[in-house]
Computed example of a mutant assay.
Amino acid sequence: MRVLEVCQELPNRYYPQLGTFIKQSIDSIADQGIDLMVISPKAFVLPFSAFPYHNFSKLPRIEHTEKYDLHYPRYIYAVPKKYFYPITGISYAHFVSRYAIKNIKPEPDLIHAHFSYPDGYGMMGLAKRWKVPLVISALGTIERKVAYEGSHTSKKIIEAMNFADKILSVSEDLKLHITNLGIDERKVHVVPNGVDTAKFKSAGREHARKVLNLPQEKNIVLFIGALRKIKGVDYLIEAAKSFVDTNTDLYVVGRDDGLRKSLEKRAEELKIARSIKFTGPVNHEDIPLWISASDMLVLPSLSEGRPNVVLEALSCEVPVVATDVGGIPEIMTEGETGYLVPAKNPEKLSEKINKLLEDESRREKMGKFGRTSIIQRGLTWEAHAKKTVDIYSELI
């Protein structure tokens, strides 16, 4: 079986934090013995530091890895996104398809696009030309939010999902959102993401803090994720005024998508800036250490698919306080692996954080149960890959 995997957002030498969980998915599929080719389209950018993601211009057209060849074709990403995102899909379809026709030999038996837009939409024409099935992964915000906006982009997302032979949803909640758009339920399959339990395991709090040069004596509340509105970090800053003090710090780990300055300003206004540490992005290989060093992970998202960071925290024996959105309640067990709170509610968020801060034995008990539940439920990348390959086999 020869499969073309397509995803605009994959980690690379210049931006290693992009789409790490998608790379884990693709790698796990390769480990099942599938002959893969991978395309990760990148926007045309000028090679000047003033431009976002300017280092894309330095990427080669192709890299040879141990598991597959990785191609970086270019396409035009139309900005501002608010007005021209529909054009991006058209550009993607034209440039990426033209590249694939010329460079992907022999033709694959199946195409798997890892976002419904622009990946899925952009691959429709190529699937028609090659007369092969198209599988689309549905990961969260695009299908839950953008597809419902009634915009030109929304119509293209729905068009792609209607065209696809199979849709792989990361959660039952997301599957419901997809079928409510009128997509045939029979072709929507729930395939949860996994976690590498060998990599994501407790490194010991004291050891992890020593390696990362973090204070041993303080409580550490941890957020990991991009600083963007959908992640609800502004609500976490509001909640922090009720739990940070001389004994507790909040660490905000992740790339800035335009919010950091406003978050820092708000922390200053609340007079808690000294207790909130913005680290910026960190190497994904260090994430198990960061989680192990913390007393809890907090995820205050407004919308989610099935966030891997929650799986990773539980696998590292760290309890989680998260909003009850998307597929998060499908991962967590309320009161046993952590706590669920309503979105946009800093009061409830701080209440549950403080409840865990006050009881170390509760944190340890929840952490151990979290890892046990991950293993018992088989939430691994191997299980994810086997289910994905079974779906491929149905189509070929």
Rank of each mutant, 00 (worst) to 15 (best):
L263P: 13
L46M: 13
F369P: 03
V309L: 06
G327R: 03
K155P: 01
R255V: 11
A208H: 04
K352Q: 12
D295H: 15
E185Y: 03
H284W: 03
D165S: 14
L395V: 09
L357W: 12
S361N: 12
V321G: 02
G370Y: 09
K277Q: 03
F84P: 00
Y235S: 04
G194A: 08
F369N: 13
H189V: 14
L297S: 07
A198V: 11
S373G: 01
M296W: 02
S171R: 04
I224W: 05
I237Y: 10
L297T: 08
V389R: 02
L214M: 13
E63G: 09
R129Y: 15
N219S: 15
I237R: 13
L222Q: 10
A147Q: 09
I183Y: 03
Q376Y: 02
T337H: 06
L174F: 07
E347Q: 14
Y53S: 06
V318A: 00
I111E: 05
I167V: 14
K271A: 08
I101H: 13
E143I: 09
Y117Q: 09
V6N: 00
D286Y: 03
C316E: 11
E317I: 07
G335H: 08
R144W: 03
S294N: 10
I76M: 14
I374E: 03
P11I: 04
E304F: 03
A198H: 14
L176K: 15
A50R: 14
T388H: 07
R98W: 00
L259T: 01
G370A: 04
S393H: 13
I29N: 01
I224Y: 05
I104N: 12
R363G: 12
V233L: 03
R377K: 14
Y339T: 02
L227Q: 11
K271Q: 10
L59W: 05
I328G: 07
T333I: 15
N345V: 00
F243M: 07
Y392A: 04
A208W: 06
D257H: 08
I230T: 11
V320M: 12
Q8A: 15
S315M: 00
L10D: 02
P60M: 09
E336H: 14
L110N: 11
T88E: 13
M366V: 11
R362V: 11
K344G: 02
I183A: 09
I87P: 01
Q216N: 07
V221D: 09
D257K: 07
L36A: 11
G367W: 07
N219Q: 14
H71A: 08
K187T: 07
S151G: 03
S57W: 13
I29V: 15
Y68F: 15
L297W: 09
A160E: 06
V188L: 05
S292L: 04
A164Y: 01
W130V: 08
V389I: 02
T179L: 01
H189F: 15
Y392K: 09
E66N: 14
P133D: 12
T323Y: 05
I34N: 01
T279H: 00
Y121G: 12
F44M: 08
G326F: 04
V233T: 08
V298R: 06
S49N: 12
L270H: 02
E285C: 01
A138N: 04
V135L: 05
M1T: 12
N193P: 04
P118C: 10
H114S: 02
